[in-house]
Design a protein around this nucleic acid. Sequence first.
DNA 1: ATGAAAGCGCTAACAA
DNA 2: TTGTTAGCGCTTTCAT
Lengths: 360, 360
Amino acid sequence: MAVVKGPTVYDVAERAGVSIATVSFAFSQPHRVKDSTRNAVLDAARALGYVPSASARGLARGRTGALGLFSFDFLNFLPDAEGMKKDRAAAVVAPNDDCRLFPVWVDEVQRGVELESFSRGYALMIGGGNRASSERAVTDIAGRVDGLIIFPRTIPDEVTRRISARIPVLELSEPSHGDGLHHVTVDNASGMRQLMEHLIDVHQFRKFVFVSIPNVETEARYEAFNAVLRDHGLEVPPVVESRPGASGVTAELVTKLLGSGALPDCFVCANDEEALVVMETLKAAGVSVPDQVAVTGFDGVVAGRLVSPTLTTVRQPMELMGRTAVEILVDAISQPLAPLVERQLPVHLVVRESCGCAKT
Amino acid sequence: MAVVKGPTVYDVAERAGVSIATVSFAFSQPHRVKDSTRNAVLDAARALGYVPSASARGLARGRTGALGLFSFDFLNFLPDAEGMKKDRAAAVVAPNDDCRLFPVWVDEVQRGVELESFSRGYALMIGGGNRASSERAVTDIAGRVDGLIIFPRTIPDEVTRRISARIPVLELSEPSHGDGLHHVTVDNASGMRQLMEHLIDVHQFRKFVFVSIPNVETEARYEAFNAVLRDHGLEVPPVVESRPGASGVTAELVTKLLGSGALPDCFVCANDEEALVVMETLKAAGVSVPDQVAVTGFDGVVAGRLVSPTLTTVRQPMELMGRTAVEILVDAISQPLAPLVERQLPVHLVVRESCGCAKT
DNA sequence: ATGAAAGCGCTAACAA
DNA sequence: TTGTTAGCGCTTTCAT
């Protein structure tokens, strides 16, 4: 039944009455072998159920033919995703009627990476891990691939540096900071500017609150947020800090604001997750969105369309980010000496209901 | 800058002043080496930026430490997904405000596979391809992993048979048919029965049309559909055949039904995709769902919650299917002689609006 | 057009 | 506790 050991080139060669080199050639350079020989080899391979070992092939060639994506398990990654974890646990066994968590932007980027990898003849190795095991996990997958894509801020610089000495590594979203990595970023500033101008010009909003976890990515958004306010001579409020996934924290902050009676015209959130939490909190407090206060997000995850009111946001071209990452990596693999590339992709304002625009 | 060749065990061994075996031990069986030695090795490795080669490791060990998922690109896989392809092409460059296609059930299963693989210490190799290249692609990834998961009906039996002689292979959704594969299925019959009884008992529907592509999976659903009708002494209609993703075909069929004036009480669709197309067609024809006719799906994809009216359907435990598949495979890897397993998972009726149940 | 043979980097007996 | 050494299965010169 279950054969313990699969056939190798040696078996195929013996059965076809040729040498192992010929077997190898028959597969990799068919034109270099006589037709009759090639057929004999192919027949033997088929008869034996030959499946080439990628390990052996990779070892001999020095390349694996696979790309890697270190797709951290964000549920086990974020320090305070307990609530989400419970939701997921429930969803595994019960009918999952709450789809808010899926897919997040990570999933959409991944899909782009997959499609582009396949169409370029690469297999995709996906690695994962929680924060504790991330170094081991990422090193493991790095050893399996010819090029690696990582999500922003998931891996210590020291580790990516070591890996990028061996294979090209591309970090998503994060702007380059003299690391030895390739980058695919989005034009956060422009997106935020479009959004703010819509809010100020169309809705006449004047008083804003920015909800965010401070990091390099949201920093660019916050700076653009500020710049627009300054340009319009409006008051620049401090950031309301929160942490993504930490419903408790964001909710608490919003509740505090509510208590103080200092409701702004609009909550501008650094990403959709925050925005969803804010909307939920407001709803729970009996505050109507967008009638009493507007809320906006940033990212354009699917969930933004599920909620009511639907979420006005700035959409990143997630699938394109994934595809672009692969493109860059494949080039870098074939030209190891080429300079690092950093490519910026455009974003698009998506006007829905939560800013106060009418239902369509 | 870009180092051409990464350091190997030999380099680490030399730098640490030990043999390559010791380096290997220091990593794989830390307790078997003296503390001072292990530290010397680890330091050397760190200093050199050592990244173990999975190819070499895999070759030597006979196992790769990775699981495989052959996740066909369904857009290039289905013969008639031209419309969907165009949608996706647009979505890549433009703001994707039509999320109907994402995620489909495949994505949710994949997520389950990923999470379970990671938590069990396996990396996940994802392969893909269109129908033309599927044999080569699946063989390629089979050579890279210790166990393989495939989606139903994507790979010819002959090919899976060859692969399963080498590593355990698990097919999703499809019931076993004497292939040498492991299986994870769902209880389609029970789900359809629950659904039909709801439609008959609660809504008093009597006249049904079943919309489906005929295949083994939907066959089970159609059989259960028929059985329930017979049990209730109701007329058993013929299947209205369509093809998934082929909006044109399903739409045409529905239009024909509309023209003949023979509208049923309810369109029971073999899956959600069909149901969404049916609803769209009815809407375009000015027929109100669920007021004039009800529609139901099967699968429970996220999109079913996006549409209006929301889709009544039967939800499969997609993530659990993925996790279960990994669990079975990991067991099979450690016990190559154990018998093939086929595990059936329960489904859940999800009552929403399209059957006529009130908005909640 | 084909074969012989030298590795690719690592693991795992077996020795020491 | 550590070192020696023989592969793991395949690719790739270099001969023939």
